[in-house]
């Protein structure tokens, strides 16, 4: 299987360990990740989608045409990119008028949207194309961790359009994927609450954003989470960088390490902290990493 690998912005430009882990992980799964050369920002739904729909759709469609030229479906590991690309693809496939309007813009750069590929989320590919059995086969070091799963908003919603889960009220895909690594996905209050960063709010009003992040962190901590696992680099950044901002603003001492699902699988496959670039995280991951592998190491030495 081959997929067009859409990088986006935050993963490759802030947390390259997520990209590295994904490349190794997908190698083990026999899925070839083909680079989408010259792809850009998805673009960010909160700013471009909110400012000018035509520009948003044109830039998103340009990215889609790169995958169309490659003849492959797109995979993205970011909920924001997923939302933008999926929504634009959907819109242009359904609406001939919109397609014509956007293609007029794209003709300026010698491109044409045809509507020949689909947009898939990383976690969706793991569940639907790889399957849980095969995923379990790549786990070398089962993790002993209590995980607070954070779905993020644009991963499953709007459910009618996305179709990964029937409802986003009590989904299971991310919890299932987490538990394959040996870790436990623990319940916590307001689990489906937004991280607070989306819709351009983080740059527009950081105080409101942090107030939401704080609520999530409180609920995660109260449930005894050893780490947070997400499927979106923007949520990832919000829980990592945002956690230090919450601590500064509210005088709290939250210290919950944050992993992208790809990094969690990387850990379970035995990748080290360097490969996962855990040093790019502001919240120290060492305690979680040590705890995660404690049981495995104990068994290994016996």
């Amino acid at each position: 299987m081959e997929v067009a690998y859409f990088l986006g912005c935050i993963m490759n430009n802030r947390y390259p360990g997520v990209e590295k882990a994904t490349r190794i992980f997908f190698d083990a799964l026999d899925i070839e990740l083909k680079d989408m050369e010259g792809a850009s920002c998805c673009p960010a739904p909160g700013v471009f989608g909110s400012f000018d729909e035509k520009t948003w759709a044109s830039i998103a469609a340009r990215n889609l045409t790169i995958a169309e030229d490659m003849g492959m479906d797109i995979m993205t590991e970011c909920n924001g990119c997923f939302g933008s690309l999926l929504e634009c693809n959907h819109m242009l496939k359904e609406d001939e008028e919109a397609k014509a309007e956007i293609n007029e813009v794209l003709s300026e750069v010698g491109r044409e949207f045809k509507g020949t590929v689909d947009v898939k989320h990383f976690a969706q590919i793991l569940r639907d194309d790889v399957g849980y059995e095969k995923l379990a086969s790549v786990i070398e070091k089962p993790l002993n961790l209590n995980i607070a799963a954070h779905y993020g908003c644009h991963f499953l919603k709007p459910t009618k359009e996305v179709g990964i889960e029937e409802s986003a009220e009590d989904p299971s895909i991310l919890d299932d994927l987490i538990e394959i690594t040996g870790a436990k996905s623990i319940p916590y209050e307001e689990k489906m609450l937004c991280c607070g960063a989306g819709g351009g709010l983080r740059s527009r009003d950081i105080d409101v954003t942090l107030s939401m992040t704080k609520e999530k962190l409180e609920n995660m901590e109260a449930a005894g989470a050893d780490a947070i696992v997400n499927v979106c680099p923007f949520c990832h950044l919000q829980f990592d960088v945002g956690q230090t901002e919450v601590n500064k603003k509210y005088g709290t001492n939250f210290n919950i390490p944050v992993f992208h699902l790809a990094q969690l699988y990387g850990m379970a496959m035995g990748l080290d902290a360097d490969d996962l670039t855990l040093d790019s995280h502001l919240i120290d991951c060492a305690p979680a990493l040590a705890k995660a592998l404690e049981e495995y190491d104990k068994l290994a030495t016996e």
Binding site: L7, C9, I10, N12, N13, R14, P16, G17, E19, K20, R23, D35, M36, E37, G38, A39, S40, C41, P43, A44, V47, D274, D275, T277, D279, S280
Partner: peptide, 24 residues
């Protein structure tokens, strides 16, 4: 990019064997 690369990340990318600049 809405969030462009910075020198620190370039270094990290190179360290883990990724291209210093992403293929974007």
């Amino acid at each position: 990019h809405g969030v462009p690369i910075n020198p620190v990340t370039k270094e990290l990318r190179a360290r883990v064997g990724l291209s210093e600049l992403p293929p974007t």
